[in-house]
Design a protein around this nucleic acid. Structure first.
Length: 354
DNA sequence: GAATCGTGGGT
DNA sequence: TACCCAAGATT
């Protein structure tokens, strides 16, 4: 197959078998495509389906997003993970409104200057919503191209990535760039899967070096793994008589950046000291069942304590602290395990067994 | 170049 | 079960 044949075959396959009914493919605009692409970074389509429409309904335009409080944006992102994506999205929206008059810049280079938009996401936005010829290189496309060219090596290595970008650029047609971009992702997602690829149905099988060698699953080279470090933390859930839990805004960098959560302490003594500092008089406390959460790069053991405090004694927390009312929760960002903890605290307060 | 950043699904 | 890793970007 020639390079031209590749694009032609991929597009013909897309017209018959590509996905055209995803929410962000309806009423295509740079804003909708941008939000979807950010949500889809390292996140499966099925997961994003539960977030995209709700986000768009709450913040239909880049102006609405730019004007929204950060807590609202993080609230809409709650449970989706990689929360810096949401903060960067918010920041980029403000830039688009304030510096570009509410219009997205119409080049990959300018798009990639916005926070949270790298080369691949910029290529996706440009090709899908602006008809600009710019390739993408996400997990799906990496796999398709690594197999098609039998490119060995872990793509995290810059030399391998550089080579795949060259291939991506060389094989991209000059017409119908939007459908082509969508087609490449669909090909990787539905046919050229990590295990058991459906080569029989593949439009570019005649030119696929990996298939010709019978070595499809030898690509991609997997990421080298290390053993997960273990961490441990104590999370006191201070509850007042109104069934509100004391939460603290976490720093914008690091784990769960910008979200709200229970304070973290190393031991019981530190818990006492924290209560003292906040003017909280402890009525009673009990340990709730522990929680072990596995992240990509470490494992965290959370020991939650339910600590009921005397409402007549405490003063209202301010600044980075707030009382989170379980009955009427405010709109702010919570990490998934924190949501789980709050639910657990609510049950314990109702007297239900843990 | 290596670490960091979440959560959920597939094998 | 224990890994792998998904429409990656940033530091």
């Amino acid at each position: 197959m020639t390079d031209d044949d590749f694009g032609t075959a991929v597009l013909a396959w897309y017209d018959l078998h590509g996905r055209k009914d995803l929410p962000w493919q309806q009423g295509v605009t740079p804003y909708r495509v941008w939000v979807s692409e950010i949500m889809l970074q390292q996140t499966q389509v099925a997961t994003v389906l539960g977030y995209f429409d709700r986000f768009m309904q709450a913040l239909p335009t880049v102006e609405a997003l730019a004007a929204a409080p950060e807590d609202e944006v993080l609230h809409l992102w709650t449970g989706l993970g990689y929360y810096s994506r949401a903060r960067n999205l918010h920041k980029a929206a403000k830039t688009v409104v304030e510096r570009h008059g509410g219009e997205f810049p119409r080049s990959v280079e300018a798009l990639a200057e916005l926070p949270g938009i790298g080369r691949s996401t910029a290529g996706a936005i440009a090709s899908l919503s602006m008809d600009i010829r710019a390739p993408i290189l996400d997990g799906n496309v990496k796999r398709v191209l690594a197999r098609y060219t039998a490119t060995a090596g872990y793509p995290g290595e810059p030399a391998v990535a550089r080579r795949l970008w060259e291939v991506a650029d060389r094989l991209m047609p000059h017409e119908r760039v939007g459908p082509y971009t969508q087609a490449m992702m669909d090909l990787g997602a539905t046919l050229c899967t990590r295990s058991k690829p459906s080569c029989l149905l593949c439009p570019v099988k005649p030119g696929c070096r990996a298939h010709l060698q019978g070595q499809e699953t030898a690509f991609l080279t997997p990421k080298p793994r290390k053993t997960l470090p273990q961490r441990q933390t104590l999370m006191p859930l201070f509850v007042n008589d109104a069934n509100a839990v004391l939460l603290q805004r976490r720093p914008s960098t690091g784990l769960w950046g910008g979200l709200w959560g229970p304070p973290e302490v190393a031991d019981a003594a530190e818990l006492e000291a924290l209560a003292e500092r906040q003017g909280l008089v402890i009525d009673e406390r009990q340990a709730l069942p522990g929680l072990v959460h596995t992240f990509s790069h470490f494992q965290l053991a959370i020991e939650p304590w339910l600590v009921q405090v005397d409402h007549r004694q405490h003063r209202v927390a301010e600044g980075d602290w707030l009382w989170y009312n379980l009955a009427s929760p405010p709109r702010l960002g919570l990490a998934a395990p924190v949501q789980k903890l709050l639910k657990r605290a609510e049950q314990a307060l109702k007297g239900e067994p843990a």
